[in-house]
Design a protein around this nucleic acid. Structure first.
Lengths: 203, 203
DNA sequence: CATAATTATAAACGCCGTTCATTTATTAAT
DNA sequence: ATTAATAAATGAACGGCGTTTATAATTATG
């Protein structure tokens, strides 16, 4: 009897329905309107029904987060055409920070908000973030190999440069830089990239 | 009739009472237990009474934030005894990141959480953060003057280095670095400082 | 067709920040 | 000292949230 398979498929479809409602709420009305009750309303089910398909709200946010990572990973793909690793490093930073500033709520969900992280205990669940992180790591390893970076430990160099970029955009997103007018943000990001390349890189 | 002054004083005392209850809840039970209802319970008044002394919850969080800034500023004072500006820069970073890791919820409130920032629209309210930021800026200006840093724009250098430090600790605090075991965090912070000093500084 | 299993829901629980009509306490004026 | 005016405090509610549970509706199986 193949009805078990259909059941499985229906369950999966319902999950997708819930996620798409969550996503559309997120995009149209912002994070704070993504509530179980609003999701349920959107798909015309009761709030309790949502809990038949997802353990809790964090699990749903986690799935949304995943979409964000895919988007970022997609944007990183254009880096492949840049030959010089130093140029590629700069472009990587630019793509990262532009993504953050153009999709602030997504970035917030992916890298700042507490909520979705409660859902995974084990680092194994971090696969999504890992892929995007590995893009940076590969570039840095090449930069070290080719002598653009004098750092010997790529782990540290990678974490430091990621931290720098994350620091910049997360300060902006959470409004901790009143000394920098909003109109200057884009320019500051470029200046930070220039500064970093000038100070960090050898040639 | 000096009763108006006494009224003023009583009002101030009540505000202090509320804040001290908020602080003690924050320290003893963590941020999530700092609710208007719990504060009211703590001081044995009704929740509505709290609103006679504070406009809303964010205003209270804002005052808590201020305490955090004072604490950080106090810790920065030991920097004064360090003569060499490059050494002072490193120590400044160390103090900052240690403060963040040892007082994670305070740091979160000061630099990450959205809540207390809704309370101030104008950069004028940022005086507290400005003092601690100026400590870093003074050091960097001296580093540039004395040729330790080749950057010409201290604004950018300052923002970049702050971003780097903030990035590191905020990634840790919000658990975005599963690739780094918790036991290694302290060591990574030191390595980041080494890396930064090595890559950034001239001599 | 009847029974078992699944799916959906209404209603509630226990929180939250906040508001407002009403009561209680204090002060000022007669 | 008594009353009138002012200020302080509150109980109860509003509208929200995530989540749970007992019950009802639906669907599948024997």
């Amino acid at each position: 009897m193949g009805s078990a398979e259909r059941k499985e498929r229906e369950k999966h479809e319902m999950r997708e329905l819930i996620l798409s409602a969550a996503k559309s709420l997120f995009l149209k009305e912002g994070f704070e309107h993504v509530t179980i009750r609003r999701i349920a309303e959107e798909i015309e089910y009761s709030p309790a029904t949502v809990y038949l398909y997802f353990a809790d709200k964090d699990t749903i946010l986690c799935a949304l987060q995943e979409l964000g990572f895919r988007e970022l990973y997609k944007k990183q793909q254009v880096l492949a055409v840049i030959q010089n690793p130093a140029d590629r490093l700069r472009a990587c930073g630019k793509i990262y920070m532009d993504f953050a500033m153009e999709n602030q709520e997504w970035y917030d969900l992916m890298f700042i908000m507490r909520a979705p992280m409660k859902a995974f205990d084990t680092p194994a669940d971090w696969n999504l973030g890992k892929d995007t992180y590995d893009v940076l790591r590969a570039i840095i390893i090449e930069c070290i190999e080719k002598g653009y970076l004098k750092a010997k430990d790529p782990q540290i160099a990678c974490f430091a440069l990621w931290s720098l970029m994350h620091g910049v955009v997360s300060i902006f997103i959470r409004d901790r830089a009143p000394m920098i007018p909003k109109e200057h943000r884009e320019h500051v990001i470029d200046s930070i990239l220039d500064f970093t390349m000038a100070e960090f890189l050898e040639k």
